[in-house]
Write a protein that binds this DNA or RNA. Structure first.
Lengths: 251, 251
DNA sequence: CGAACACTTGACAGCCCTCAACGTGAGTGG
DNA sequence: CCACTCACGTTGAGGGCTGTCAAGTGTTCG
């Protein structure tokens, strides 16, 4: 069992501000960091409280359920899975987090992490001390607004999977949303690699792993996608979007 | 069809600050409003931006999907249902909101309300202009923290119903959580009135109305509850909590 | 090479949805 | 006071989707 990497503060702080503008361009905070209205000194303030974490490797935990909440983090590279284990030992995947997305926001309410976070591949993170960023947000309206928006957005995405959708609808929506998120970050929207196992997808979509397998095969046979192991190509995006339609109408 | 009441700004502003301390004691902002660390003048600032709305009557809309987002609101009295209508015309209930609870937080991200809100009975609200409360939050760390916590909490509750729980688990969890929320606001935890229809409950729990009816009847026959029309008494809270267990372990 | 793991494929059953009919209570108007 | 209407709620029968169980295949890694 690997140690929890995230709460540690004795990690070396990578101060590679030199390429900060490059890797931050796709970050959730980029609007707050890079947009107009924030001068050099303010930008330095924000970069001052960023700690670069990693690289973590597949299976390393970013944080664990019950850990005291001290910071949120933006994924810089790789994929992070957040999940909980319920009373009966079943895993519930709350989400997969791609570069630019923020994890830990649901820990603010209780001051503890209500879930685990684990790296699915090689992951690097930007760690933001929450007390510090709160103080800074009081001086920077745009940053405060960004935080409010990030939190608000998570409420919406959390209720997205809550509906009583069919397995086909869930899977199609999963693929389309993943594709869109990857595209927004500069990756190919049509062809990509699933960084998570079938079981992870099943636990996220609240399906059985067998059902995930069957639906993917049927989508493949019907020409909607081409799937080989974890490689996926969206062959008929339009029909996929049509299947997922009712779910995707939500942002 | 009734008009949307909420976005209007030409409503009479009820300035009954005289009993502000009374009705606000159970409000989500009470910690920010009434706790230490906020002096008289700051308290006045917060009360200044509160607009009292209502009374609305059963069937009146507080806001509608697509309305521009200008303000959040705390329920003072009554029950508000938030819901969406999907492409296929099916209603999805996002939540029932009791006195002291805040609605509209999921509108921040898109600057529009992503759902409808309707009064289930006679409802009064406190309306907080969001731009104004944001500015105030920058000056009052405690208020900022309260807002962050409210947003963060909603992420958790949104993912609560996302699991693939059985109808029994969902219903038990629904009753227990409703009971706890009512108790936290000074109402009886054991005996209460359902302000929503069976269909509303079904659309919230993602079940068919018939299933809701059947489960309630079985719970009644098994001595877990006593239900007569919309009157409910929790006869065996312990067993109910046991059934709901896996869901309730989340905050 | 062998073991562990992820994934696939098939058979079967169970939960819950759908469809349908009926019962009940509140409100209305005569 | 009663008949009527209408929405809401209950109850029953049947079927479909998807979970469970089981076995087999393929891949990775020691």
């Amino acid at each position: 069992m690997s140690a929890t990497e995230f709460p540690r503060t004795d990690r070396s702080i990578v101060a590679d501000d030199g390429d900060a503008y490059t890797f931050c361009s796709t970050c959730a905070f980029s609007h707050a960091c890079l947009s107009q209205g924030m001068d050099k000194s303010q930008l330095r303030d924000l970069h001052m409280l960023v700690e670069h974490i990693g690289p973590l490797h597949a299976g390393d935990h970013v944080f664990r359920e019950g850990d005291p909440f001290e910071a949120i983090a933006a994924v810089r590279a790789g994929t992070v899975k957040t999940y909980t284990i319920d009373r009966d030992g079943r895993e519930h995947v709350l989400g997969f987090h791609l570069p630019g997305e923020v994890i830990g926001l649901n820990a603010i309410a209780e001051d503890r992490f209500p879930c685990n976070a684990i790296a699915l591949d090689t992951v690097t993170l930007c760690r933001f001390s929450f007390p510090k960023i709160s103080i800074l947000a009081a001086r920077l309206p745009r940053l405060q607004q960004t935080l409010f928006q990030l939190l608000s957005r998570d409420i919406g995405t959390a209720s997205l999977l809550a509906g009583d959708w069919s397995a086909d609808e869930r899977m199609a929506a999963f693929l389309i949303r993943l594709s869109r998120r990857l595209a927004a970050r500069g990756f190919s929207a049509e062809r990509f690699q699933l960084t998570m196992s079938r079981t992870d997808i099943a636990n996220y979509l609240r399906l059985a792993p067998e059902t995930v397998s069957r639906v993917l095969k049927r989508f493949n046979d019907e020409g909607l996608i081409q799937v080989d192991r974890r490689e996926v190509e969206l062959a008929d995006r339009k029909r996929l979007e049509d299947i997922a339609g009712a779910i995707l109408q939500q942002p």
